[in-house]
Design a protein around this nucleic acid. Structure first.
Lengths: 101, 101
DNA sequence: AAAACATTTCGTAATATTGCGAAATAAATT
DNA sequence: AATTTATTTCGCAATATTACGAAATGTTTT
């Protein structure tokens, strides 16, 4: 047992959180869709995906909670985009991690 | 709905599987430990981690199932190492994915 | 053969994820 | 004001994850 009060480092926790956000194929696909065009309306994403809209909404929320995407309300639709800060941090942490060996 | 029979591409599924393997801080830490020394005995890993040995065993199994590590039985211990093929594939898929935007 | 050691499997509990359809919310259009 | 459109929240069910300690497995040492 390590002596630290915390079980894991902040980086380990963050890395795991980003990895978890990407741990379902549909969320990988959502990120790919958002990357391929600057932004995208929720409905347009739904048309490309084999899941119910309510289920998509949950996946979008997970990506948002992880800080990887952001949604802008432009009535009556919601425009989703990749969130730079989160995406860049995920990139940085994962790249570092993958380079280690 | 896409016309393809399969819901997701092979790459999306593989990427999600590797991401899932790394979606818990303790598994990130295990990979870091294994990367920092060529190989490691299960018991030595357990000494560094704040979880029960049976729990560690489950996490090791998940990493093994994902193809990221391999265990060699050198009685009475088991020596765990990073599995090159899997690790390299994860590296490749994730790097590609992260570069996309 | 018995004791010690290293690790896994089993049983179980608590919690999280994934999925859907129905209902709710909220804005735009008629 | 009523209808349409876009999306989310709710309620629920099925399954998966995470964790632990106890028991089992298999090897080495005594």
């Amino acid at each position: 047992m390590p002596m630290s009060n915390e079980k894991y480092t902040e980086e380990q926790v963050k890395l795991a959180r980003y990895a978890k956000a990407l741990s379902h194929p549909v969320r990988v696909q959502i990120m790919e869709i958002l990357a391929s065009q600057s932004c995208c309306y929720s409905g347009d994403i739904a048309d490309d995906l084999p899941i119910a809209r309510s289920t998509l909404s949950q996946h979008l929320n997970e990506l948002k909670d992880a800080g990887l995407i952001q949604g802008e309300f432009t009535p009556p639709k919601i425009k989703y985009c990749i969130r730079r800060e989160g995406w860049d941090e995920a990139k940085h942490l994962l790249s570092q991690f993958l380079l280690m060996k």
